[in-house]
């Protein structure tokens, strides 16, 4: 079939993700065997980049450093320093230096874990794991070594009966959502920690930012025994994370938030914010309602940086 059977407006719609899924899939299926079509698609993409001057966009200050941190967190075991990943070249030298200085304090402790993490990720890539599995290995909950700590590993592994490595990651290369009692992997991942001092003007802004976070949604429906283990593992992980801006520790106010709860409180995200003009920490927590047997609700707690007092408590 002549590649012209696919008109250019369809190529444009495909690049904009405006095609229905089945039509996009059909187009992608044709590309490997139709170099002319692929060439036209390349030309269309290049034209759109030139038309929008997209290569000349100026990202905000700190963009490279934040991107670096996020990717390190995906590749390594520490959301702030990313001990397990190779350094990323995207950050300016000064930012990288800052990151490396932060890392240095804990380098010895985590160097082995980081090496193993990188090796596991590499093996996963080479062995051609399915996309979803690879996502779980490399990203999402982090790689299999390090982060959650040895004592957390012991607790979780002992409870679930699975391998220690599966338990620590909170994710697995095996699919399935079976109960922990059967030795199946936990669905939980490590919390995401971001140091971006996001400005949140009001409750509506908080709700808009934190609704439907992937890291929170994947915790929902986790059985309570598994959730308790995940809560402990996540808390241990946060205690080990390096200070955020203004010397705030990610775990600084977590104990207070968990203290009065009879049900597991699993942090999905911890983030520095500026809420109503005040520096604060935002905790996105996944918990269970009274009487529930699994995690079933998400709430965000905005606590003031100075004394951990609550500035906003919002159920999402």
């Amino acid at each position: 079939m002549n590649s012209r059977a696919v008109p250019d407006d369809v190529l444009s719609a495909y690049l904009a993700d405006d095609l229905p899924d089945d039509e996009a899939a059909a187009l992608e299926a044709r590309l490997p065997g139709d170099p002319e079509l692929a060439g036209r698609l390349d030309q269309m993409a290049a034209m759109l980049v030139a038309l929008g001057n997209l290569d000349r966009a100026t990202p905000p200050s700190g963009f490279d450093a934040r991107l670096t941190q996020r990717l390190l967190a995906e590749r390594g075991d520490d959301p702030v320093r990313g001990d397990g990943g190779a350094p990323l070249a995207a950050a300016p030298v000064t930012d990288l230096d800052q990151i490396r200085r932060r890392r240095a304090a804990r380098q010895r402790r985590w160097v082995l874990g980081g090496t193993v993490a990188a090796a596991v990720a590499a093996v996963a890539l080479v062995s051609g794991l399915a996309v979803q599995e690879l996502g779980f290995m490399v990203g999402g909950g982090g790689s299999s070594a390090g982060g959650a700590g040895e004592e957390a590993a012991g607790r979780v592994a002992g409870q679930g009966g699975g391998s220690a490595e599966d338990a620590v990651t909170g994710e697995s290369t095996e699919a399935g959502d079976q109960p922990a009692a059967q030795g199946a992997p936990s669905r939980t991942g490590r919390p995401v920690v971001l140091d971006r001092e996001v400005v949140l003007a009001d409750e509506a802004a908080v709700r808009a930012r934190y609704r439907a976070l992937v890291e929170a949604e994947r915790l929902l429906a986790a059985p309570l025994p598994q959730a308790r283990a995940a809560a402990d593992s996540a808390a241990a992980f946060l205690r080990r994370s390096s200070p955020l801006s203004d010397a705030l520790a990610p775990a600084e106010c977590l104990a207070a938030l968990r203290r009065d709860s009879a049900t597991p409180v699993v942090p999905a995200r911890v983030e520095t914010v500026v809420y109503r003009g005040e520096p604060a920490l935002a905790y996105v927590l996944v918990t269970a309602s009274d009487g529930a047997r699994e995690l079933d609700r998400t709430q965000v707690e905005i606590v003031r940086a100075g004394d951990c007092s609550t500035a906003l408590s919002l159920r999402l």
């Binding site: 250019d8 407006d9 369809v10 036209r40 030309q43 269309m44 034209m47």
Partner: peptide, 8 residues
């Protein structure tokens, strides 16, 4: 999208 096609 039609404009893009014409441009191309």
């Amino acid at each position: 999208h039609r404009g893009h096609a014409r441009l191309a």
